[in-house]
């Protein structure tokens, strides 16, 4: 561990590599986590199938690249398909567990996650898949730091998508309805908001966001039907750290987690890269507990 720290101080340029890799991937984590924050905040549903939605999006990009279409065009396709899929899942499953206690929704989405993994496994097989962007790879700072263009492009795309979602939530009627429902579902209903439709839309929007994140993941990391869980855990860590309805917090936590994973993996060894994520979750929960002990917060 000390050796690795020494490497970082001896070759400080490596910090840039780790930081860039962390931020680029962290942005995608943040995107998927924002979807979770939305569903959690608005519907009080803890969606354990979050990571599997991400994988589904990834497989859409994979299929497109198999068909000879550049996987980046998978982005709009995944958004549309996953939105529709999210809507159907809401109608079939989520609408039945909403408003029930926490464990019902946890069980239902956990079951959904297993189902999706197995279906993906049946269709695509258990082998690892990737979608190749074929974009340039640049080396900077004397070849010690390499940046794949696709990572940079996905970083930009993530920012654009986040901006669109935020604008939508702020200014559109549906966005306002979603925020109203999040504040007080009963009052929103009294005011004439069709909360059922709002819920369906929110869940579908979340699936679409995850799908977009998956397309980017397919071009940067690898896909496997059972890899969704790692993303679900990351989303939970980010949302727990940032709190619900706190978009800047989600972005910061996402980027931070990405960078933290990279530095942790470098210093402590790759075997700790994911342990760090879970360790962070414990730490965040402890801090929250401590904060809550000091000042009682109203639960919205």
């Amino acid at each position: 561990m000390l050796d690795n720290l020494l490497i970082l101080t001896a070759v400080p340029v490596l910090n840039v590599q780790l930081l860039l890799d962390g931020l680029f991937i962290g942005a995608i984590f943040a995107l998927a986590a924002y979807g979770l924050a939305l569903v959690w905040g608005v519907m009080n549903v803890k969606n354990l199938a979050q990571g599997d939605f991400v994988m589904m999006g990834g497989y859409i990009a994979f299929v497109m690249s198999k068909m000879g279409i550049h996987p980046i065009f998978g982005l709009p396709v995944a958004i549309v398909l996953m939105f529709a899929f999210g809507w159907i899942v809401y109608r079939l499953i989520i609408s039945r567990v909403i408003g029930r206690d926490m464990f019902t929704s946890l069980l239902a989405t956990f079951g959904l996650a297993i189902l999706l993994q197995q279906v993906l496994n049946l269709i695509f097989g258990p082998e690892v898949q990737t979608a190749e962007s074929g974009f340039e790879i640049r080396s900077i700072l004397g070849g010690m730091v390499t940046v794949a263009d696709i990572k940079f492009i996905s970083f930009l795309l993530t920012a654009v998508l986040a901006a669109i979602v935020v604008t939508f939530m702020k200014f559109s009627r549906m966005g306002q309805a979603i925020r109203a429902t999040a504040q007080d579902a009963r009052a929103a209903k009294v005011m004439g908001i069709d909360t059922d439709r709002v819920y369906a839309f929110t869940y579908a929007l979340n699936a679409a966001i995850c799908g977009a994140a998956g397309v980017l993941i397919a071009m940067i990391w690898v896909l496997q039907p059972f890899f969704g869980l790692a993303y679900s855990i990351r989303c939970f860590v980010i949302v727990t750290a940032a709190g619900l309805g706190n978009l800047p917090g989600v972005i910061m936590a996402g980027l931070g987690l990405g960078a933290f994973e990279q530095f942790g993996g470098f210093i402590l060894g790759a075997e700790f890269q994911q342990a760090i994520v879970v360790g962070m979750l414990v730490l965040v929960l402890l801090i929250r507990q401590f904060q809550q002990g000091r000042q009682r917060q109203a639960v919205v």
Binding site: V11, D21, Q224, F226, G265, F266, Q274
Partner: peptide, 22 residues
């Protein structure tokens, strides 16, 4: 370098950064 990769790790860039340095 003696890194152990977790079961569902989709990223080993931290390890490869070390390879670059060493």
């Amino acid at each position: 370098i003696d890194d152990k990769l977790p079961r569902d790790l989709a990223d080993m860039s931290a390890t490869l950064t070390k390879v670059k340095a060493l």
